[in-house]
Simulated assay, not measured.
Amino acid sequence: MRNVRYVTSLTGASSAVSPSTATALLVTSGVSAASIAFFARSLTEAGLSAAAVVFFRFAATVLITGRRIALTDRKRVDSAWAFVAGLALGLGWVGYVLAIERLPVPLVATIYMTYPAFTLLATWLISGGRPASRAVAGAALVLTGAFIAVGPSDAGVGGWVVLLAVAAPVTFGLVVAVMSDRVHALQPVETIAATSLGAFVGLVPLVVAQPLDAVIPADARTWLLAIGIGLLTSLLPMMLFVVGAPVVGSARAAAAASLELPTVFLIAWVLLAEPPTLAQLAGGTVILLAIMVSPTRRAPGDNQPTGQCEPASASRLGADARPFLRRSPHADRSAGSQSALAAAPRAPRDHVAGRPGP
């Protein structure tokens, strides 16, 4: 298959990417995003608060993209939607980090992967479209996997912490729905900028309320971790997915990026000495299978070949690309893969998976 030219960068410039290179980028994006577990646990153990950890996670993206906030008449409303979605995104990640502090990492990661079920609910509430029966069944299977992973001991000992962990996929599902159904006019970098700024601004009051030693890294190692969480778990995986997903389509994007959950399990086992339990492995497997078999549908007017539909991925990164991908006007329309979306795709009503936002 020939290389295909896509607008895949923050600057909007087109670039040629081969399918094999795109697949490698997607795998790398999933592995990079999975490192959030290591960074979050390490930073909280170093004394930073959960709010500060998430603050640093979005800081790099805001610094790089903040000047691209779109406030023109045509884009102001969409920017506002993205900003509000970012507020929810930041608060959801605070819940995730608080849970990482207190619960086994594999359990928190498995709970987080239930976000497609909440995406389906939020999309129905926002758009009013009735979800397909297969999508509902997929969402039910996702929740079943979470119930399998959260055993009676976890629910009994740290029930309120489990609720904190659930808050992350709930708010993230809302973000997916908003970005898919309400943000259409923005360029990729404008969407990233507005969403990241919303998360960043929403975290400022929480960070200001913390003592300085819970916000400012105390040594060089902690500073490196704080910088790393912004670059390696947010900006880098998002951009790698934006480059790779349009070239290979949703099926391969889902398979490659879904390595994130097993990678979190491996990181927890090797670096944090927290091997997943059989229940967590079983629940994670059920969730991944549910997302992988969830129905996808091509966007209206999309002419890509069968199996090359929009990148509604099984991973957290999957929907990152949906509002961020724009097909180059100079793309080779005879090339095999034509899975990039227009600037303002409307999410199909029967999607279960997807993830916008950094």
Rank of each mutant, 00 (worst) to 15 (best):
V54L: 00
R74Y: 12
T110E: 08
L125H: 12
A60P: 09
V54S: 00
I111T: 05
L121W: 04
V150I: 14
E101F: 10
G145C: 12
T110D: 08
T114C: 11
T123N: 15
P131K: 00
D73W: 13
V53W: 00
R76K: 14
G145V: 05
G86K: 00
A132R: 07
E45M: 15
S133H: 10
S42Y: 11
V53G: 00
F56C: 02
A140Y: 11
D154H: 13
T44V: 15
I126E: 03
D73M: 14
A37P: 08
P104Y: 09
I148Y: 08
Y112C: 13
T65H: 05
I100V: 14
P104I: 09
G86C: 02
A149N: 07
V62L: 03
G138W: 02
E101L: 11
I100Y: 10
S153Q: 14
V62I: 03
A80T: 11
F56K: 00
A88Q: 07
A132G: 15
D154Q: 13
T114K: 07
L71C: 08
T119Y: 13
T144N: 12
K75S: 13
A140F: 14
T119D: 10
A59I: 06
G156L: 15
T65R: 04
T144Q: 12
A88P: 06
G145A: 11
L120E: 00
G66I: 01
T110Y: 08
L125G: 10
D154Y: 14
R102Q: 14
I148H: 07
V105G: 09
A80Y: 07
T61F: 07
E101Y: 11
G90M: 01
V142G: 09
A139I: 03
T72D: 15
A135D: 01
S127H: 08
S133G: 12
V136L: 10
A60Q: 06
L98Y: 11
G95L: 01
K75P: 08
D154I: 07
R130I: 04
S42R: 11
A37D: 08
R74W: 12
I36H: 13
L121K: 04
M113Y: 15
L103V: 11
A109E: 05
T144C: 15
L63Q: 07
P106L: 12
P152F: 09
S42E: 14
W93T: 00
F38H: 06
G95T: 02
V94Y: 00
I69T: 05
P116F: 06
S79M: 04
R67A: 13
S49P: 05
W93H: 06
A149K: 03
V150Y: 10
V62S: 03
A140P: 09
R102T: 14
W124P: 07
W93I: 01
I36L: 15
P116A: 09
A85D: 01
V94M: 02
R130G: 03
F39Y: 06
S42P: 07
G151M: 13
G138K: 04
G47K: 05
L71T: 10
L143S: 09
